[in-house]
Design a protein around this nucleic acid. Structure first.
Length: 258
DNA sequence: AACCATCTCAACCGCGAAAGC
DNA sequence: TGCTTTCGCGGTTGAGATGGT
């Protein structure tokens, strides 16, 4: 059900993602965040366009992405919100924790759209037309998924600092505060009162800033339930760049993804 | 068993908005 | 103020899965 992998004119890969590519992207974003999707594949060693990386991360690799069947409550909420908001999938998704706009959009087109049409039909016709909307995954799989997600949330909540919780109010920043940097960082109180850091100590070069280890993301090292245990530990202290980006900074990463 | 039609969903594409210069 | 770059959103595509004949 995935597009076959191919290489376009500019040498960029398209289509289905391999496990190796997933690992590269996951490792890179979890460690460094995503300040610039367009540049990211270059640094992460991926032959993909930034847009493709962003989509893969947002819809599949991002921690906390809930996969599997939609519950009845979720279905009802989607129907209700779609009535109110129309095809504004991102707005609808904002009310469905762990779901992605792509997933909600697909679910709407494959399951719920029919239902809204059927609602205006007589009941006997509804039964005839709803034959093939059974979910493919087993209940056992779904239960496994749900428990993994809940463990993830409890784990990250415990480790999240007060600052991170504040940042999480912005849904875009929920899982990787650094990811908000390119557009939302205004040079203000970004590290919070408790942080040892200050704005003055930010590195001069933003490139070196984002390639340096990111201390606030320590919560991710606990994500054993969703197989992130292979990730290298992230330093406890935020270490600032004293120079611009150095190749050796990335040695561990390139070794990791070999 | 083979073929065809339909369903599903990951991934792509194009466009508008926002941000940066 | 206008141009360029980047991001995010919503629509669409396409190939595997599934069901029917």
């Amino acid at each position: 059900m995935v597009r076959t992998t191919c290489i376009d004119k500019s040498g960029l890969k398209k289509g289905a993602w391999s496990e190796e590519e997933d690992n590269k992207l996951r490792a890179y974003v979890l460690r460094y965040g995503h300040w610039n999707w367009r540049q990211l594949p270059k640094f992460a060693g991926l032959s993909r366009c930034g847009k493709s990386c962003r989509l893969r991360w947002m819809n599949y690799l991002r921690p906390g992405v809930k996969r599997g069947n939609f519950s009845e409550e979720e279905e009802e909420l989607i129907l209700k919100l779609h009535k109110e908001l129309g095809n504004r999938w991102s707005a609808i998704t904002a009310r469905l924790p762990g779901r992605t706009d792509n997933e909600v959009k697909n679910y709407w087109h494959t399951h719920l759209r029919k239902r809204t049409k059927q609602d205006s039909k007589p009941k006997d016709k509804i039964e005839q037309t709803s034959k093939r909307s059974q979910p493919m995954e087993s209940d056992a799989d779904q239960n496994k998924e749900s428990s993994a997600i809940s463990i993830f949330h409890s784990t990250t909540d415990q480790n999240r600092s007060g600052l991170e919780t504040e940042i999480a109010a912005d849904t875009n920043c929920e899982l990787s505060p650094l990811s908000c940097g390119s557009k939302h960082f205004d040079g203000g109180d970004w590290f919070g009162e408790d942080s040892n850091s200050s704005v003055e100590s930010l590195p001069e070069s933003f490139e070196s800033f984002w390639t340096e280890p990111f201390a606030l993301d320590t919560s991710y090292s606990n994500l054993k339930v969703i197989n992130y245990d292979w990730l290298p530990p992230v330093e406890e202290e935020f270490t600032y760049a004293s120079s611009s980006f150095l190749d050796e900074d990335m040695d561990w990463f390139h070794e990791l993804i070999q």
